[in-house]
């Protein structure tokens, strides 16, 4: 076999691997190629771009916006020199929320109106609030403070402590109708997924596997939850019904797959994949849309 032919075979094989991750019906598409550390992707309104945090062209982690058609990447807040993390949008796209590190062990949440660019900053006093998410209804934010989940109303500014359990509670995600909150908790030993009914305060455990189940994300329809788990040895993306049924593994890859987020149509998922030690955004179509 001559070298040219061998090279062609290699290219074809690589292309096939890149495009066919889970099978011919669920192609995987690589969206970025700079390899820099990335986290927290979320689709912007209209799903024509993805906002995520990365060290791209900066020693700090900052928010970037990837235009999906052109592949162009720009800073979301080009004038800011502060660390930015955890972007999220309300379902109607009118509010954009993210987190800033504002000093030594101090953080703030930024709520921005996407149409007017008006900005509101919610601060804590030497409290490290973390993993903030705005609700799909755009009326409150959920976050982790010292291992418990809190909600803060954007109308009244009132803060409510949602969990008060043993262990750690983290990565809150509010359901599309605002009535439930999914989160991870180590109250029963290791991190598993739980859903809290806000009206009754009833908590349902969704997963029981050994290992780390974290970063739950409600589907736009409210029927499924994406999450990351290392139950099979390293970080992979999984999906489970909101009642704990129908657990499905979506990635199978020897390096890390993490930070899954939903496309607004519920048919695709974007996430951060480590490949060859590099970190890039990928997208896949779901075998069955989450309806």
């Amino acid at each position: 076999m001559n070298r040219v032919f061998q090279s062609c075979l290699l290219v074809l094989a690589t292309t096939a691997l890149l495009q066919v991750g889970l099978g011919a019906d669920e192609p995987i598409v690589q969206l970025t190629d700079d390899g820099l550390i990335k986290r927290d992707p979320c689709y912007a309104p209209g799903a024509k771009s993805i906002v995520f945090a990365s060290r791209h062209r900066s020693p700090r982690m900052v928010l970037l916006q990837l235009e999906l058609d052109s592949g162009k990447i720009d800073r979301v807040n080009p004038k800011s020199n502060l660390v930015e993390l955890s972007p999220s949008y309300s379902a109607d796209g009118k509010l954009f929320c993210f987190q800033r590190l504002t000093g030594n062990d101090e953080t703030a949440f930024i709520i921005q109106q996407t149409e007017t660019a008006n900005v509101r900053q919610l601060t804590g006093s030497r409290k490290v609030n973390w993993n903030v998410r705005i609700s799909p209804l755009g009326d409150e934010v959920a976050y982790n403070l010292s291992g418990q989940i809190y909600l803060r109303s954007l109308k009244t500014d009132k803060e409510v402590k949602l969990t008060d359990s043993a262990g750690r509670n983290d990565w809150p995600s509010i359901s599309p109708d605002g009535k439930q909150v999914a989160f991870s908790s180590s109250r029963d030993g290791n991190y598993d997924l739980y859903v809290l009914q806000r009206e009754s305060s009833e908590v349902t455990r969704l997963t029981t596997a050994e290992g780390l189940d974290m970063r739950p994300r409600w589907s736009p329809s409210g029927s499924q939850i994406l999450f990351t788990s290392n139950r099979d040895g390293n970080y992979e993306i999984y999906m489970v019904g909101t009642d704990g049924s129908g657990l499905e593994r979506l990635t199978e890859h020897e390096e890390q797959d993490d930070y899954a987020c939903w496309h607004p149509d519920g048919k695709q998922v974007a996430w951060v994949r480590e490949h060859g030690g590099r970190f890039d955004l990928f997208r896949m179509s779901l075998p069955k849309p989450a309806n």
């Binding site: 060290r55 700090r60 590190l101 504002t102 000093g103």
Partner: peptide, 16 residues
Amino acid sequence: ENIYDNRTDFGWDTHW
């Protein structure tokens, strides 16, 4: 420091 002065240096000093 794990979180310090606007850096993402992320040392192992994980008070938070």
